[in-house]
Design a protein around this nucleic acid. Structure first.
Lengths: 163, 163
DNA sequence: CCATATACCGTATATAATTCGGTGCAAATA
DNA sequence: TATTTGCACCGAATTATATACGGTATATGG
């Protein structure tokens, strides 16, 4: 989003961390309010934020949408095991995953399955459909195990920022 | 964040969905830019956004921070099984989870374990510590299985908005 | 047919973002 | 030590944006 080109960042100091923490909590905090809270002038604060964006420390900003208000009430985790045939089945599978909007996350893991997927769908019939028509037909998929989420105990995805 | 009190929302129309999609992608999109993109005046658009916030459709806004720039390079999933003794061990465990900042997500699931946790830590020694000193000492924890993430294939956590 | 509610518009005002010149300080250099 | 250079910062000016408000069109129900 910010075309971050990996420049050498010497230090992320205490003020930077405070900025990151505040913007992680409230992505629409105004620059003047942010500046006040970290004890800088608006212009100095603005510079820091833009730098953090350009360095890729701040990746992007997003509104968090309540899925249940849009009828996506069912969240599932799916463990996927691939067949051991093709060497590039990994790449093909990854491509297919990225094209599937119901999939919110997919990670290659070490352990007794290959991928862990997190998905959201309206209801069980929809999931039945997603599993049968999409997930299980993806290239190289051998096996799957589904875990239905009954309650979200914690789901903020906020990185711990020390300082 | 917006003190959403579950008012009756009759409809989320095409324009609302467009707004949600745009703000989910760019949480700092200015209201005038947003208004242009959805074909409304700034004031009308502003009203809609505030309504969506008050209704809880838009839950909050957040900057997305790059964890690896802050030295949190290791992501793990942990399956947790509780002992079947206490009936409120679930609540105690949940409380402990919410107090642990390394835990980004924790879900109660149906299947052969109880909770699925997603966590981020700097490295393997840190995880060793988190597991031994925090996760396994949480109330009621019986068993755990850890899956280390080798690659994040997809990780946007964006809800699919139709329309 | 009229009253009411709603969604919208455009304008005006209040806030905020951003640009810019200038200052002080610290580290490197002579 | 004196000098230069590069930062990070500040405050003021400019530009842009958010927000409040009055007014209009349209749909709905009495």
């Amino acid at each position: 989003m910010f075309n971050a080109e990996e420049p050498v960042r010497i230090t992320i100091d205490r003020i930077d961390r405070k900025i990151l923490k505040l913007l992680q909590d409230d992505g629409r905090l105004s620059n003047v309010a942010l500046a006040q809270r970290v004890g800088l002038s608006a212009s100095a604060c603005n510079e820091r934020v833009r730098k953090l964006e350009q360095e890729g420390v701040i990746e992007s900003y997003h509104a968090r949408i309540n899925p249940s208000k849009l009828g996506a009430n069912l969240m599932v985790f799916v463990e996927i095991t691939l067949t051991r045939t093709s060497s590039d089945s990994f790449a093909e599978f990854s491509d297919a995953v990225r094209k599937t909007p119901e999939i919110l996350e997919c990670h290659l893991v070490a352990g007794d399955f290959d991928f862990l997927i997190k998905a959201r769908v309206p209801d069980m019939p929809s999931y039945r459909k997603l599993l049968g028509e999409t997930l299980l037909t993806m290239p190289g998929v051998n096996e799957s195990r589904t875990y239905v989420v009954m309650e979200e105990v914690k789901n903020d995805n906020k990185v711990l920022i020390k300082g």
